[in-house]
Amino acid sequence: MDDLITQITAHYNYWMVIILMMIGLYITISRGNLIKKIVGLNIFQTSVFMFYISMGKVTGGTAPILTGNPDEVYSNPLPHVLILTAIVVGIATTSLALALAVRIREAYGTIEEDELLTIERDAEAAEDKI
């Protein structure tokens, strides 16, 4: 029992993050709307960011901006740096995905995956008939 409690206090943060991640991933792979998928992907990625930032946290620490006080404890700056980069990658991916969704809507008249699949299957069937 003690073991469990130790586990919980030590890792509850990560577990919450994992739950968020999985909701995001689930939205991405289960929803059919292209925009919603992108939102899901964002949640997934943001949760991964939380995971990294959680790693960098030191209990009782402060933000890694040096104050000059030699006794000050700082959280780890490296995960922050990595995640700054990752956020940028995330927004870049999002904007590209949105642009694709817009083009798909213009070309097909829909951004629902199922309808797109039907249209493409019909197109393939038509090609086969020629």
Binding site: M21, L25, T28, I29, L34, K37, L41, F44, Q45, V48, F51, Y52, M55, A86, V89, T93, L96, A97, L100, A101, R103, I104, A107, Y108, L116, E120, A123
Partner: peptide
């Protein structure tokens, strides 16, 4: 062929999931 768009979109989604998995593993 307009199907290039949906192909790119699916590639993007799967590729990004792949990259994110990689980042999780790396983490």
């Amino acid at each position: 062929d307009r199907r290039a768009l949906t192909a790119a979109y699916n590639y993007l989604i799967m590729g990004t999931i792949g990259a994110t998995f990689f980042v999780i593993g790396l983490g």
